[in-house]
Amino acid sequence: MWISQPAGKVLAVLIVLGVLQACASTTKVEVEADQEFPRPLVEQLPVHMGIYIPQEFARFAFEEYELRQPKKGKAAKKKPAGKGKGKQAPKDEAQEATETEGTAEVDSATGSADVASSGQSDSAEAGEVATSSETKSETETETETEIESASVSASQNADPPRLKMRVDLGAAQSRLVRTVFPPVFQQASLLDGLDAASFPEGLELYLVPAIKDLQYTTPKSTRLQVYEIWLQYNFKIYDRNADLVLDWDVPSYGKTPGAFMKSAEAALHAATQMALRDCGAAFSTGLRHQPALQRWLQGREARRSKTELNIDAGSGATGSVVGTVSANNKENGE
């Protein structure tokens, strides 16, 4: 029995439109700013810590663009797939082009991370234009070239890159820092700026968080029924004189199983929430074990002990002076 009624035709058209929409849709993951993070049950570090959240951290959004492929024979540049951080599933090249793992390193000036990855390919050659953002020293130039070539490719094609994936993370990660980090310290103050003159009384150190990298995988690329997110955070801790005390990279990871009728958005959202909690766990349990911070704490204790000794010694000297003065007074018959 074929659906031949008008309603059936409308349904059929809607199904087709739905399928087409699914093919070209953008995955948008917005991690809510009101996501709750629990207070960590950890022993507090005996420090008055300032916490400064930079604008680029608070507004961070990861975006991955898919380049429309040029027509056959027009690929601007061929690069072996998976040269950067974008890993490829072991499939044929045309498939590989659509299954690039998302990865980005962050532009600290803008707080955004844009990645261009190759889109669907109708030729094996075009499938090789997989591009990823990689700013580590050796591959930096190479990556710039890749992105440039991808841009050239896109401009030749005249079609703008299509937004393939967007993860809005800034609000949630700022909330994580504001909620989970302060209880790690005996005293913590949120700072509006890094002007030392405006620091609260007694502030000893201040912390500046940054996100360096975001990567994700989907079942499409790994053939595992798991959505995964990796976040690479960096925490810098300075003393009041803006001297660097600790430079600490913290990777965090979240994963969630894919399920029938579960959207990629929902799965990646859950994975991102897990990754944020994981970052909080890593920070709250691992900070005290950082050798640089332990050295600073030991140094502070040593300075305090020295100061106390000096004060004691100073008190002793004063006493002797007083004593001397008294003795002189006695000698003078007073």
Partner: peptide, 13 residues
């Protein structure tokens, strides 16, 4: 359970 004993029963810990 994980919230009340955070961060000691997260996948990492």
């Amino acid at each position: 359970f994980q919230d009340r004993l955070y961060p000691w029963f997260e996948p990492r810990t």
